[in-house]
Design a protein around this nucleic acid. Structure first.
Length: 820
RNA sequence: GCGGAUGUGGCGGAAUUGGCAGACGCGCUGGACUUAGGAUCCAGUGUCGCAAGACGUAAGGGUUCAACCCCCUUCAUCCGCACCA
């Protein structure tokens, strides 16, 4: 018997699959389609273990579904635009394109060495003109639909990256990519109007039954819907109105101050000419200097200053002092809030600090509130007091009654607010899809005509750290003709956020070579939505929210006929080692390439699928890898030991010729088929599926030194290899080709079915409990009914001399006798 | 602070509907084969106990004939959000 040498067989099978075009897919309306997709990688140059895990999971799903008869789409591509390529250009003088393409080449080589069942004919690379042409085309579609606009705004700026960032890309006040500090800057930038879809993006989360709850919760929080009302105050001595937004109109009679954000446009008017104007201005500039982080931290101190102006409460007619404070956000609601210290914790702190009045307007049901006994705002439910005609109404009911009142007096109206902001999509970088817009002095902003797309990236640019838009340094790029008047015009020199490229790639896979449109509608409607999407939790908001937005816009544009891009989402856990995420700085990185070279791809895949459930973090263990390798060697040896007998055996045979041990083995086989099938298809429990395959293998070893019916050996080998195939494709193909030499490759076989009659046992072991404690294990006929079981229990020596209170029988499981 | 998750041997983890806790793997111990073993095969391996047995799923309580699983309280760890009025 020859030895299992993965290095030899893996390459052989990879080449064979590639030359046979084994994983090529076409639309086939006669078959049920299945679209398995792993998040495409950024081409950093090398796969890391997170990729290996991601692709191993996806490959099991794709191969399994294929064996179950689905027409499977399983593509791979590269999210190829982005900063690192540009940093390489800055640091090493290599062009981002060359750097990226070289990295892609290496990563494809590594992916191929894993034996993944991708249809490589469908590869997409977002940095290629034949792809970004359609990214630009989609930008124009958004523009034409009023969903892309340019405006001057206070935006997030990362100095390191020399570009603006979307809100979603700012993590704890830092850049998602380089971790550098982000600060605010006023710039004219392009936005996508994702807020138009806020309600649908929120509401449709309920359709996503196949998504993890926590991802949906995160998106829900990010969209941040709140229902309340907006109303306005008159300002004493000014012909101005001051609007505020609140979710607590029921507390409105308790307003004792109003607070403006430092940026609020009214501030300037209100403070002009006050005797302490310079003091107020100093406060404002100090507030504006604070970083976003400091200002929005709930922990930071609430500071404020009185403007000297008064609003008039529409509820009580009283004068309400107008303050400015650092705790009011300008970009949410109206940038101004009402202060009700008795019933809001922030207002309580603020009022306490500056000696502002507090008025209780919601009273506690059990015991009346007294200000001097309170050291906190009262935010529980209660009944309105000090609220004029609304006194005595429970506060929840009062909310809508007071809004009705405001609406009837034309003072305000119901209002829904979202935390979600429009998506800032322009970037002052080179390595991205140029925004296809032309500025003409005469005709204004113009889209590049569709037949002139793509707007190609120029080569004559300078790459400099922190430089503004490298495209602006090109001699040739900016100058152009206005598509409308033909006069001199200039191009937009910003590029698009790479998240735009990745917001539609899963659609392009359906029709990757189309040169007349982004994709053919019928093809996208056949393959999409993605049936199973697999990737890391880090995209819970960013990519997954943007893709949902894109899908909805494209649906409204009638380019496709579904509402959600990803029917089922699996968020894999991280690969960690020694308790920490693998990282160069911690020195705990395990290189996939080295593992594959040493043990083979099958071992790497098997270990990573076996070591932990897919959604949980996986602790890398070199010894665990050894264990996986050991198992494959065991499979290799035991199957080849029976090779000759199996070859001469029959596929259909009379199972009544089997002896008792053989019947047991056959039972284990069919139980394993049942379990593995369920574990893969219903639960994604690959770790337990593999463990039962190990148990089956252990059971075969019981026949290592004793005769095994060749027909059964053949049945076991056939099914074991079919079940192993999605996990460890190479060794499965190799053993299959040796044992079932004149049959098609194991990956072309149908998945196995279990034989229910093989699982049935004549005699089963049940547990006898006395007062819930296990006292005995008894063998009984499987057909024995409750009465029979009870009889056995009564005759048991463990019941002797005891008074039986009750007997509980669970068929096929246990008997519990309650005694005194 | 709010929201979500997790907590089981020396370790990774099983236990699918409330019904034998610890499957499978790692590690460890012993044995076989062997010049040798870091290969392979076999056996053992939750804790205490000579044993019968008792105890045991973060801690405490509850429901139940029966609880890792359901309910209540507390703790720890991780993740997300975090002045959103």
């Amino acid at each position: 018997m020859d030895k299992y040498i993965p290095q030899e067989i893996e390459k052989k099978w990879q080449d064979q699959w590639e030359s046979a075009n084994s994983f090529h897919t076409d639309e086939d309306p006669s078959k049920k389609k299945y679209y398995a997709l792993e998040m495409f990688p950024y081409p950093s140059g090398n796969l890391h273990m997170g990729h290996v895990r991601n692709y191993s999971i996806g490959d099991v799903v794709a191969r399994f579904k294929k064996m179950r008869g689905f027409n499977v789409l399983h593509p791979m591509g590269f999210d190829a635009f982005g900063m690192p390529a540009e940093n390489a250009a800055i640091e090493h003088g290599i062009h981002p394109r060359d750097w990226t393409l070289k990295n892609i080449e290496n990563m494809i080589r590594q992916q191929k060495s894993m034996g993944l069942s991708y249809d490589w004919n469908r590869k997409v690379e977002t940095c290629q003109p034949d792809y970004y042409r359609w990214t630009q085309w989609l930008f124009e579609l958004f523009y034409e639909r009023g969903l892309a606009y340019k405006k001057e705004a206070s935006v997030n700026w990362c100095d390191n990256c020399g570009t603006v960032l979307a809100n979603e890309q700012v993590i704890d006040g830092r850049c998602w990519r380089c971790d550098g500090e982000v600060h605010k800057k006023n710039l004219a930038q392009w936005f996508f109007k994702i807020t138009d879809y806020a309600e649908e993006l929120l509401a449709d989360l309920s359709k996503l039954d196949g998504w993890p709850e926590r991802v949906k919760t995160m998106q829900e929080n990010w969209i941040g819907k709140s229902e309340g009302c907006e109303f306005h105050f008159d300002i004493e001595g000014f012909d101005e109105k001051l609007s505020v937004y609140t979710t607590r109109p029921d507390t409105a009679f308790g307003i004792t101050f109003v607070v403006l954000a430092a940026e609020h446009p009214l501030v300037e008017k209100l403070i002009a000419g006050r005797e302490n104007e310079s003091e107020i201005r100093a406060f404002i500039s100090e507030t504006l200097k604070m970083s976003e982080m400091e200002r929005t931290s709930a922990a930071s101190e609430k500071k404020g200053i009185f403007t000297g102006a008064f609003a008039i409460s529409p509820f009580t007619g009283k004068k309400i002092p107008i303050w400015i404070s650092n705790y009011v956000l300008y970009n949410y609601g109206t940038g101004a809030v009402m202060g009700v210290p008795a019933h809001d914790e922030r207002d309580w702190m603020f009022a306490s600090k500056y000696g502002i009045d507090k008025i209780i307007v919601i009273d506690r049901p059990e015991k009346s509130l007294k200000l001097d006994e309170m050291d906190n705002a009262y935010i529980e439910p209660g009944v309105l007091i000090n609220s004029g005609e609304f006194n005595g109404i429970p506060n929840e009911d009062a909310k809508s009654k007071i809004v009705d009142w405001l609406e009837s007096k034309n003072l305000g109206s119901r209002k829904i607010n979202y935390k979600l902001r429009d998506w800032l999509i322009s970037r002052q970088r080179y390595w991205g899809a140029p925004i296809p817009v032309i500025y003409c002095d005469k005709c204004g902003e113009q889209l590049v005509p569709k037949d002139q797309l793509p707007v190609l990236l120029p080569d004559d640019v300078e790459f400099k750290q922190g430089a503004l838009s490298p495209l602006a340094t090109s001699k040739t790029f900016s100058d152009c003709k206005c598509p409308k008047c033909g006069g001199h015009a200039r191009r937009e020199t910003d590029t698009m956020d790479t998240f735009i490229c990745s917001s539609w790639y899963y659609l392009r896979y359906a029709d990757p070579k189309n040169s007349s449109e982004p994709f053919e509608k019928s093809k996208v409607n056949y393959w999409n939505p993605v049936d199973q999407y697999i990737g890391g939790i880090e995209h819970a908001i960013l990519h997954l929210l943007y893709s949902r937005f894109f899908t909805k816009v494209l649906r409204d544009a009638k380019l496709l006929d579904f509402d959600e891009p990803f029917t089922n989402l699996l968020t894999q856990g991280m690969v960690i080692k020694d308790g920490a995420k693998m990282s160069k700085s911690k020195g705990n990185v395990v290189s996939p390439e080295e593992i594959i070279e040493k043990y083979g791809a099958d071992t790497a895949r098997l270990f990573i699928l076996f070591a932990a459930p897919v959604e949980r973090d996986l602790d890398w263990s070199d010894q665990g890898v050894e264990g996986a390798s050991r198992f494959l060697n065991r499979v290799w040896r035991i199957l080849l030991q029976f090779e000759d007998q199996i070859k001469t055996a029959q596929d259909s045979y009379d199972v009544s010729t089997l002896n008792k041990d053989e019947i047991d083995l056959r039972r284990i086989l069919h139980r394993t088929i049942k379990k593995v099938t369920e574990d893969i298809s219903d639960r994604f429990m690959f770790n337990t599926a593999i463990s039962s395959l190990m148990e089956l293998t252990n059971a075969i070893y019981g026949f290592q030194d004793k005769p095994l019916n060749p027909n059964l050996a053949r049945e076991v080998a056939r099914n074991l290899l079919i079940m192993l195939a999605p996990f460890v494709p190479h060794i499965s193909s190799e053993l299959w080709s040796r044992i079932f030499a004149n049959e098609k490759d194991v990956h072309e076989q149908n998945w196995c079915e279990f034989d229910p009659s093989a699982i049935v046992e004549d005699e089963i072991e049940i547990v006898l409990q006395i007062n819930g404690k296990v006292r005995d294990r008894i063998k009984i006929p499987a057909t024995l009914d409750k009465d029979g079981m009870e009889k056995i229990a009564r005759e048991s020596k463990f019941v002797e001399n005891k008074t039986i209170v009750k007997i509980i029988c669970v068929p096929k499981k246990l008997i519990n006798v309650v005694v005194k």
